[in-house]
Write a protein that binds this DNA or RNA. Structure first.
Lengths: 189, 189
DNA sequence: ACCTGAACACCGTTCAAGT
DNA sequence: ACCTGAACACCGTTCAAGT
């Protein structure tokens, strides 16, 4: 306690636990008592850190797209070429499936769109924006024409592949779908 | 009451209401009191027709894929050619968005996969199977090679387009994505 | 055959109270 | 500063009871 980080640690633990649950069960699947149990506090204590479920959801989604943005920057930095970065992009969405058949947070939440508080919707949209912007930039760098439209199409198709593979709990289906996107020409070969 | 259809009417009204809600809010968003209010009965009365929420969810999803199968047959029957049928296929998913920004039931439920009762999962998978089988058949009839893989890719990409367009409540985004799928070669032009 | 009211353990949320 | 127990109206579900 004397290091002064207890509060931050609880807050971070709440965020991490909530993110894990939301990627498996969506916003509606988030529940304060389960989060509190995992963190080791009581449900009422969460309200000290987040004034409502909407605020918690928005904070989780915001952190999610910020982490995604950092991951995409790292991908660009470590890739030999833009084409190499693009080739590795589907691997990011594959990792969620590898991790207990989880899904992109933006997809679990898009499915519940009607029930989402506005603050959560805003952060969910930011995730898509970050991905589409990165894809658009990287596609243009490889000389693909009409990169903006293509970027959205790729993002939507990969989200759909993740959704379908998850509903079968079948990682190899995801790989097959990505391969089919390459064969068809949607993704650069 | 003397026509003996009262029970059937309540049961059908429950199914129709539950389907509408599930396409907007998912399985977790289904709640007995709201359904009962819409139908004009009490929540406890639903249990006379469906022994549990899992059974209701499975019945809704089963009816959903059966209706989809009939719609696809009608599409095949009324299309001038298989290529024409394929061209009109994305319009089926567009209709859900047109209808109060709703989504394919299989997508809202895939997002909640971890929480779904097994009986519901089975019916959700059947919906994807029906669509992929129809696409595969129709693609083969137009001479597309590797129709089975292409069929899954198209289904996943269209589900993803619907998911993304819904999260923006933007029907024109759906049209743009379908157009981009055609330009890229994923969908036959 | 079909429906209901009342009850159960569970949810998000509030609040006064603890340290 | 951070946490808690007890309470609120809400959920799925059960059940005995009504017509």
């Amino acid at each position: 306690l004397r290091d002064g980080t207890t509060g931050v640690n609880s807050k971070e633990a709440i965020l991490a636990t909530a993110r894990r649950i939301a990627q498996a069960r969506g916003y509606g699947g988030l529940n304060f008592r389960d989060i509190a149990d995992a963190v080791g506090i009581k449900a009422a204590s969460i309200y000290y850190h987040f004034p409502s479920k909407a605020d918690l959801g928005a904070a989780v989604a915001q952190r999610y797209w910020q982490d995604a943005a950092a991951e995409l920057e790292a991908l660009s930095a470590t890739a030999a070429t833009p084409a190499d970065a693009l080739h590795r992009y589907p691997g990011i969405f594959r990792k969620a499936l590898e991790n207990d058949n989880r899904m992109c947070l933006a997809s679990t939440m898009a499915a519940e769109y009607d029930d989402l508080p506005d603050a959560v919707k805003t952060q969910v949209r930011a995730f898509a924006d970050v991905n589409v912007a990165w894809l658009s930039r990287t596609l243009s760098a490889t000389g693909v024409a009409d990169g903006a439209h293509r970027a959205r199409a790729i993002f939507a198709a990969i989200a759909g592949a993740q959704l379908l593979a998850r509903s079968r709990a079948d990682l190899s289906l995801y790989d097959d779908l990505i391969a089919a996107y390459r064969v068809s020409g949607l993704l650069p070969a």
